[in-house]
């Protein structure tokens, strides 16, 4: 049951940013993540500031030179069904289509998907973990089957977003507005590791709001895909996944981005895997080598060792499929 809060429908981004700079205020977009957190007392709020009156944050617009500008309030359904995204940024369309359920995609927004809180069952449950001001990461001594194999320290959450790895793979930028103005951050620098913060998952400062996601024009010869492995077909986050964007030239990989989901507290870019494929033809042998490179340095916990072969399997399969 939700506790009391007051409600404010922001009339402008500036007003929303002003209001949201207070620690007891939360920004409401689609609500699918926030209301769950409030219901289970994971978060508290005295006031919700709704962005839903701000049409400037809605919809998909053409960017300079053939790119796209995705308003933060664009729903995941709109992303998944947008003709140009399906054609030119299929990794993103596939990632958006893999989120939750049709209803959650109709309601959930792209901005919200990037800013959602961890799905760790200890964080969401009635456990006072480090990320909620406690002194324990319950995954360390508890059940860690869904936790991270990369980037963990003091907290072993995985980042739950499917669209984030896709956007990192597309080298997207995120436009952030706060009281002091607007800044543009590459999505690859948007998320923070537990080593940098145990209370937040992004670089957003109090009062800052994600307003837009910017996609560069698609590279010539680009191919992309998102592959997600989960326990059931809907209502599920990735056990592991991979967002891959490659640009081919003369039968060889010219540029590549390989970003993993479900394995680290942030979308996990594997530059080792990228290096393995760049300059080579995309074939089965290269896929196997890249997959092996991607899991180097993985440090599984007690229950999630399976994620190492899983990542390998996903990359072998997806890179091979992209070659076809």
């Amino acid at each position: 049951m939700l506790s009391q809060f007051s409600y404010q429908r922001a009339a402008s981004i500036k007003e929303a940013a002003e209001a949201a700079s207070r620690p007891d205020v939360r920004i409401l977009a689609g609500g699918t993540d926030l209301l769950g957190c409030l219901r289970n007392q994971v978060l508290q709020a005295n006031r919700l500031v709704s962005l839903n009156g701000l049409s400037a944050l809605k919809g998909i617009r053409q960017g300079p030179g053939g790119g796209l500008r995705l308003g933060a309030l664009t729903t995941l359904t709109e992303i998944a069904e947008h003709r140009q995204i399906l054609d030119s940024y299929s990794v993103l369309a596939q990632a958006a289509a893999s989120v939750g359920s049709p209803q959650l995609r109709n309601q959930g927004t792209l901005g919200g998907n990037l800013c959602q809180r961890p799905r760790c069952w200890y964080f969401r449950g009635d456990f006072k973990c480090r990320r909620k001001g406690g002194d324990t990461c319950f995954a360390e001594g508890g059940d860690s089957q869904l936790h991270c194999i990369f980037g963990g320290a003091s907290c072993y959450m995985v980042h739950p977003s499917d669209t984030a790895p896709a956007l990192v793979a597309l080298d997207a930028k995120v436009s952030i507005t706060g009281r002091r103005g607007t800044r543009l951050v590459p999505l690859s620098s948007f998320f923070v590791l537990p080593a940098d913060s145990l209370v937040k998952e992004t670089v957003l400062q109090p009062g800052e709001i994600v307003t837009e996601i910017l996609l560069d024009p698609p590279q010539p010869g680009a191919r992309s895909a998102y592959r997600k492995v989960r326990e059931r077909g809907a209502f599920d986050f990735a056990l592991a996944g991979a967002a891959i964007v490659v640009a081919m030239a003369e039968g060889k990989v010219r540029t590549a981005r390989v970003v993993l989901s479900g394995v680290a507290p942030v979308p996990w870019r594997s530059t080792d895997a990228e290096k393995t494929i760049i300059g080579k033809p995309l074939d089965a042998a290269v896929a196997v080598a890249a997959a092996a490179a991607a899991v180097k340095g993985a440090s599984p916990l007690a229950d999630n060792g399976y994620k190492v072969p899983l990542v390998r399997g996903i990359l072998e399969e997806t890179l091979t499929a992209l070659a076809a």
Partner: peptide
């Protein structure tokens, strides 16, 4: 016209 969850939608919204 779009299917949504009434439990995750505030009435004011």
């Amino acid at each position: 016209g779009a299917a949504r969850y009434a439990c995750m939608t505030l009435a004011v919204e």
